[in-house]
């Protein structure tokens, strides 16, 4: 069953800049779906259009529909979307630095009834034992990895049905990225949270995801099951840096790269 369905979405910033040019995607309930693409392709914009956070950035969805559980939900305010069960973990972690770890988690639980707070808190501390150690510390003094854990922990506090994750691997060491992705997988399995994951780290995202979309210039150019995309020769070439034989490509062949890329877009 599809939980989220986006059809022909167009988003314009400042009334001039057309960022999404008719984007469509579908997220199955209980799945992990990933959205890949180069910088400026419109991945974060897509997430913000879904969560309603566009309004603070002078962006507007000018056409298209977003169906959540089969009902249209465009032009809703972000606080309403959170109450409906869609929670976005923003790019760059965006934790509240001068609040303690536990106060940050309380912000995540803002829309939840107070009686669920301690069970949810316990849940977060089980997923991220390191947060428990630092519960009274100011969040701004934590390392990047811990801050990302806190950002994801905050989302768990809100008990979402659909979790929008924007580049959780940003600026983290490879081992930490793996740890965080493992936990995302666990949350998906154990809490039944559907995940829409935006990533630059294509290999990691595709190996985790059930289904993947590849974006370029505000459109979806390719989609398929995670494992299929991982073995697709074009994806290997453009996003994973491998040639058809699986070896690293020579920089001399870059002209060829350009020609193919134009065809792809």
């Amino acid at each position: 069953m599809s939980l989220l369905n986006v059809q022909n979405l167009e988003v314009v910033y400042n009334d001039v800049v057309l960022v999404l040019k008719g984007l469509s995607l579908n997220v199955e309930k209980g799945s992990i779906t990933t959205l890949l693409g180069a910088n400026g392709a419109g991945k974060s914009t897509t997430l913000k259009a879904i969560s309603g956070l566009l309004e603070g950035e002078d962006g507007k969805a000018t056409s298209g529909t977003i169906l959540y559980k089969g009902k249209p939900m465009s032009s809703k305010s972000p606080e309403k979307t959170v109450r409906q069960g869609i929670f976005q973990v923003m790019e760059g972690r965006r934790i509240f630095e001068d609040l303690t770890v536990e106060e940050n988690l309380r912000c995540g639980a803002y829309t939840q009834p107070a009686k669920n707070f301690s069970t949810n808190l316990e849940k977060v501390y089980t997923y991220f034992p390191r947060l428990r150690e630092r519960r009274t510390q100011l969040a701004g003094y934590m390392s990047g990895g811990e801050q990302q854990m806190l950002a994801i922990g905050r989302s768990v506090m809100a008990c979402p049905e659909l979790l929008l994750l924007d580049e959780p691997s940003l600026g983290l060491a490879p081992l930490l990225v793996e740890e965080i992705f493992d936990i995302v997988k666990k949350i998906n399995k154990e809490e039944g949270v559907t995940v829409l994951l935006v990533e630059q780290n294509a290999r990691m995202a595709l190996s985790l995801a059930d289904y993947g979309y590849i974006m370029e210039n505000g459109r979806i150019v390719m989609d398929g099951k995670g494992s299929e995309l991982l073995h697709n020769p074009d994806v290997q070439e453009f996003y994973l840096g491998l040639s058809h034989g699986g070896e690293k490509r020579s920089y001399r062949d870059v002209k060829h790269y350009r020609r193919r890329k134009r065809w792809l877009g």
């Binding site: 606080e79 109450r83 976005q88 509240f96």
Partner: peptide
């Protein structure tokens, strides 16, 4: 904006 994304 981050506060908004928490549903505040």
């Amino acid at each position: 904006q981050a506060a908004q994304s928490m549903g505040i």
